[in-house]
Nucleic acid binder design. Sequence first.
DNA 1: TTGTACGCGTTATCAC
DNA 2: GTGATAACGCGTACAA
Lengths: 333, 333
Amino acid sequence: MADTANLVSVARRAGVSISTVSRTINQTGKISLKTQEHVRRVMREVGYKPNRVARRLRAGGNCHLLGLIIPNIQNPFFADLARGVEDVAYRNNFAVLLCNYDEDPAKERFYLDVMQQESVDGVILPPIHERDPAVLRLAKSGVPVVCVDRALSDPSIDKVEIDNRRGAFDAVAHLADRGHRRIGFISGPALSSTGRERLSGYREALTTAGITVRPELIRYGNYKQDSGRILAAELLSLAAPPTALFVANNLMTIGALEAIREKGLKIPEQIGLVGFDDVPLAAVFQPPLTVVRQPAYDVGRRAAELLFARLADPKRPPTSLKLLPELLVRGSG
Amino acid sequence: MADTANLVSVARRAGVSISTVSRTINQTGKISLKTQEHVRRVMREVGYKPNRVARRLRAGGNCHLLGLIIPNIQNPFFADLARGVEDVAYRNNFAVLLCNYDEDPAKERFYLDVMQQESVDGVILPPIHERDPAVLRLAKSGVPVVCVDRALSDPSIDKVEIDNRRGAFDAVAHLADRGHRRIGFISGPALSSTGRERLSGYREALTTAGITVRPELIRYGNYKQDSGRILAAELLSLAAPPTALFVANNLMTIGALEAIREKGLKIPEQIGLVGFDDVPLAAVFQPPLTVVRQPAYDVGRRAAELLFARLADPKRPPTSLKLLPELLVRGSG
DNA sequence: TTGTACGCGTTATCAC
DNA sequence: GTGATAACGCGTACAA
C-alpha cells in the first residue's frame, strides 16, 4: 500500500522546502537549474505525481479537467463528437467528465451542478434549448462554456454548430434534381434549433425547385428510432404517398428503413431516401445510403480547441463556428 | 459572480457551527430535528452544494466519481457498455470520468495515473492484456477495479465477461448446420483473450461438426474495419475460397461487407456471413445480418453494480460474471 | 447535542 | 533563489 508520494515527502527527501518543489513543477519563480534537476530526479525516484484534487481545491479550476454533457453516447454522432473532444483534451493532459443527460432537464441540472462542484476548467455541451437557464447560469458564474450542435441565445458564448439549413437544403435539392416532386420530411422536434433549421432548409429547397410545401408531408419526430419508423409508416400510407423521404437524423433514418422494409418497397426505385448523419454501415448498405454527413468529430475537436483558447485568454472575443455538412450521394436517393 | 456558498457561509447564516451543517448533510452524529430542518432550509435558500473536490481531498475516494477506461467510444460495443456504467453511476449520484486509450499502453498509463490523482472511488476497464502491470499496480494500491470484456490474471479482481467461446461456437455451429463446410474466420488478435476464446469456439464447433480445421481459412485482424476488409478479400481470393465467413467483431464485419461487395458476391447465396457484435443497421440490412449479440449495456451495468457492491463492502469475495451472448439468426448466414 | 481545531496536498504571498 | 505559512472546503476527533 505504497502511500503515494506528496510534496512534503519529495521535499524532505530532496532536502528542500515544498515551495521549491512546487515551483520546479510549475515553472513559476526562479529556481537554480541545479536544484531543479535534483528535485526532478527525486520526483522520478519516488514516482511523484501531483495530486489533481488538491490542485483543483486550491486553484479552483485550471486543473486539467473538463466536462462534456451530451444527450446520449450511444448515438454515433455524439460518440464521434466525444472522441474529438477527448483527443484534444488528451493532447493537453486533460481528462474528460462524460455525462449523458437524455434531454432530461433534471439530469442536466444534476450534471451542471457536478461540473461546478468538481470545479472543472470548462464545459462543452449541446444546450437543451436556446435559453436553457441552467446553462446560462453556469456560464454567468464564470465557468467557460462552449456550445456544440445547438445554439444558446447568449452571443457571448463560444459555439460550434453545423450548417443545418444548408445540409437539409442540399439533400432536398438533390432529391428534387432526381425528379422527385413529393418529398416527405421526417423532422426533428419543432422546438430544437437543429429541427427548425433543417426544416427551413427543406422548405427552401422545395420552393427553389418550384415545389409547393405540403404540411401533410412533414412529420415531427424526436430523433429516436421508433419515431422514425412510425412517422415513415404514416407517410407511406398516405393516399398520395411521397416518392422520396428525407429524414432528419441517423436513428430516425434506421426507423424509416424498418418501415420501408415492412411495406416491401424497393429503394431507390419505389422510394428515395436521404438521411441526415452518416452511420457505420451506410456505405455497404444495399443500396448504399445517401446521407448528409455531419463532421461530428470536428465539431468536438473545434469545440475543445475553442475551450482551450478561452482558457489561455479569457478576454478573447467570443467565437462562433459553423461547419459545413457534406452530401454523400451513394445510391438510396 | 455569486461566490458559491460553502459550509462556513451556511453555518454563519444559520447561526450554527460548520460541524452541525456537515453533520446534517451526512447524517452522521446526532443533531436535533429542529436544527436539521433549519439548516436544510438555509442550505436551500443559498443554494448550497457540497464541494466534491474538497470532499475527495479530505476523504480520498468515497466521493462520487468513478473512472471508465475503454479503447474507443466510437465502437458501438463500448458506447453501449459506457451507457450501462453511466446509468448505474447516475442512480448513485456518481459522475464518470471517460477515457479512450486506443489500446495504447502510454495512454493507458496516463489515464491510470489520472485515476489515482483524482482519487476516484473505482475504475472499470478492459485491461490491455491478462497481466497488464499498470492495472495490477493500481488494484494493489487499493483502488477498486472491475475488469470488463477481458480478463486479468489476478483472481481477486471483480470482472464481467462475455462467454466468447460459446458465442463463437454457436455462430459457427449454425453455419455448419446450414451445410457450410469451408468456413473462414476473421479472428481478433491472437494475443487478446477475446481473440483466443472466439478462436477456440470456432475450432470446437468445426470439430464437433466433423469438419477439419484449416489454418489457411483463419486470419488474424486487429478488430478494426480495414483489417476486416483486407482479410476478407484475402480469404475470398483463395483458390478454394470459403463458402461462409465468421467475423470476430462489429467493425471487421463492416470491412468484410465491403470486400464482399467489391467481389460482387451475393449474401447468403454465394457467401454466408455471421458477425460478432450487433450493429444499429444490421436488422434492416439486405439481407438482415445474422450476428452474435453481446449484451454490452448489461456488461457495463453489471460491472458498475459490482463496483458499488465492493464499495459498500470491501471485504466481499471477488465476483466473476460471465454473460451469455445470443445468436440472432436473421438472413445473412 | 453542539462547537473548535486540525489535516488532506496544493499554490501563492510573504519574508529573508 | 529559497523557505515558512496561510488559505482552498470539507470531515472528524476531541472537548464542552
